[in-house]
């Protein structure tokens, strides 16, 4: 079984702070990490590999710095790593990103493609389903558990607002995975030792033979008109009082506002 996992390097958004004076993002010193849902997706692939034997390829579209994340994937157990990088991809929205990844995936053998549900820098959850459509594959999103019959059928638990659904599908297909379904393993010592001796394959726009009109800024139907930090709401009253007074105060404020 050939599994390809789409992964992305992202800034750890929980570490981002706002400069209160200028209202701008402070990105200096913010660590870059493998996107958590993607890491869950890689863990899902490696779990299938452990149980059934599989060849696991990781692919990312991004700048050359993403190399370090691909080495981390090697150290976790990936067999092959591909970095899709080209200035022609710059400025891509989700659809243009999906066109580039789908074109690259067409060049690779796969039975199962796994993407993380969403990346923590954009939180769009769009690239997985868009790739599935461009490759004409069935998709299952919000995947937290996968059982394989050893032949071609996968039974999948999909998380929903009310609970979950059990679905089944034959390969080839595409899943988007949730980090909560698959707690990622640590890198193995041997994996870490050998990760930097292994080869990350580089693919450019020319290599994947995609229609240039579908890539990068040109291939992006959406664009950012403006970005801004939210203006802070006016802070209310602050009271430093003992517990009795505090309880009285809360109670009377709620009565005043007709909430109770």
């Amino acid at each position: 079984m050939n599994i390809v996992v789409c992964i992305k390097q992202v800034p750890d958004t929980t570490e981002i702070k706002i400069n209160p004076a200028t209202g701008t993002l402070i990105r200096d010193g913010v660590p870059s990490i493998m996107n958590p849902d993607d890491k869950g997706g890689l863990e899902l692939a490696l779990t299938l590999k452990d149980a059934f034997g599989a060849h696991v390829t990781v692919i990312t579209m991004g700048p050359p710095q993403a190399d370090s994340m691909l080495r981390e994937a090697f150290a976790m157990g990936a067999d092959r790593a591909i970095l899709l990088t080209d200035r022609a991809f710059a400025g891509a929205d989700t659809l243009a990103t999906s066109h580039a990844l789908a074109a690259a995936l067409k060049k690779l053998p796969f039975d199962l493609i796994i993407a993380g549900r969403q990346a923590i820098d954009g939180d769009t959850a769009q690239v997985g389903p868009q790739i599935a459509e461009l490759l004409d594959l069935p998709q299952i999103t919000y995947v937290v558990d996968v059982q394989f019959d050893g032949k071609k059928t996968l039974t999948v638990k999909k998380e929903t607002e009310e609970g979950y659904q059990l679905l089944s599908v034959d390969m080839p297909c595409l899943f988007t995975a949730l980090a909560s379904g698959y707690a990622a393993r640590y890198m193995s010592v041997n994996g870490i030792v050998t990760a930097y001796d292994r080869q990350v394959e580089i693919l450019t726009a020319a290599d994947i033979q995609a229609d240039p009109a579908t890539l990068g800024l040109k291939g992006s139907p959406t664009r950012v008109k403006k970005s801004f930090t939210k203006g802070a709401k006016e802070a209310g009253e602050l009271f430093e009082v003992d517990a009795e007074t505090a309880a009285d105060l809360i109670f009377s404020k709620l009565q005043e506002k007709f909430i109770i």
């Binding site: 702070k17 993002l25 939180d123 664009r223 950012v224 008109k225 970005s227």
Partner: peptide, 16 residues
């Protein structure tokens, strides 16, 4: 919201 809610972005789709 983007970047975990740290930034707001206004997006348009003007040609499609």
């Amino acid at each position: 919201p983007a970047f975990g809610g740290n930034l707001m972005a206004t997006i348009i789709c003007d040609e499609h």
